[in-house]
């Protein structure tokens, strides 16, 4: 209750509140497509690859958003080029490219001498969200959600059966890069709340939880967004009241929900599955 009072009272807390809800929603939505397309590793890669972009933006005195998006997309293209033009497998090319970007970022950041230090970018701090950051997050969120609504059909079919989609004329490569751009946008938006290192958890943990709970894509996306937003708010609460790292708490809340689903999910949970297995055994 006291938390709600504080929420009404403190502007920094309101900014943190709206930002983390939006981040929870959009990472849950994009995360659903990421895990269904088998691109969890790509999510991790892009989130690390934006680091040099953040540093360059600080050097140039522009908003970190621009540099981060540029570097994220550049990394996605570089990964695609390495995979397509050599015998290197996809996971290896992801590893090569994102570590290179990340390493470059570390050097840039240490040279950039900014107020925002490396720890802040790596681990996030939702309580330090500035007004401009909040607006960027909300605008990014709006763009991401609108894009998913408009291209829902195309995202669904290209995630489910890419060859069939290609056969009837969908530009599947363009859709892949669209997903990469959306992924980069979500990553950038998440920097403040969970940080580079833990962004991947926001992308795949709520989506995986939802994946265990439903057989319909749109319900999965909705649930995933809900779980993401809930984890963010609960995480923010613990982070504020007990002075803990916001990103870490948010991720742990999401993980806790995943464990619940992993055990108790009606169809996919291990508990019911073992009960069903035992029943069919005794029946036989």
């Amino acid at each position: 209750m006291e938390f709600i009072n504080d929420l009404m009272q403190y502007e920094f807390l309101q900014k943190a509140f709206f930002t983390s809800i939006m981040v929870g929603i959009i990472s849950g939505v994009i995360g659903s497509f990421i895990i269904l397309r088998g691109m969890a590793l790509m999510g991790d890669a892009i989130s690390h690859a934006v680091l040099p972009g953040v540093a360059i933006s600080f050097m140039l005195g522009i908003n970190y958003f621009y540099g981060a998006v540029l570097m994220g997309v550049l990394a996605a293209v570089a990964i695609g080029v390495v995979t397509q033009h050599s015998r290197i497998k996809n996971d290896s090319s992801i590893g090569i490219v994102f570590t290179a970007f990340f390493a470059l970022g570390i050097i840039f950041i240490s040279k950039a001498q900014t107020a925002t230090d490396l720890t802040q970018i790596l681990f996030g701090n939702v309580l330090s969200v500035r007004t401009s950051d909040m607006w960027i997050t909300l605008v990014i969120g709006g763009i991401v959600l609108l894009t998913v609504v408009l291209f829902y059909k195309e995202l669904l079919v290209s995630s489910f059966d890419e060859t069939m989609a290609q056969a009837y004329g969908l530009p599947t490569r363009a859709i892949h890069y669209l997903v990469m751009v959306l992924l980069t946008l979500v990553t950038v938006a998440s920097l403040q709340t969970v940080g580079v290192v833990l962004v991947v958890a926001m992308l795949i943990t709520p989506a995986s939880t939802a994946y265990l709970l439903t057989n319909k894509l749109w319900i999965m996306i909705l649930l995933s967004a809900l779980i993401g937003a809930f984890s963010s708010v609960v995480g923010l609460y613990f982070s504020f009241v007990y002075n803990l790292s916001s990103g870490a708490v948010i991720v742990l809340v999401a993980t806790f929900l995943f464990v619940l689903a992993f055990i108790f999910a009606p169809k996919q949970g291990v508990l019911w599955r073992s009960i069903r297995a035992r029943k069919s055994k005794s029946a036989a």
Partner: peptide, 18 residues
């Protein structure tokens, strides 16, 4: 738009939420 393609069964992710 006039081509219907049915992939090999092994190419499909049967756990897809659909």
């Amino acid at each position: 738009k006039n081509i219907a393609y049915v992939p090999q069964r092994s190419d499909i992710d049967w756990d897809f939420p659909i």
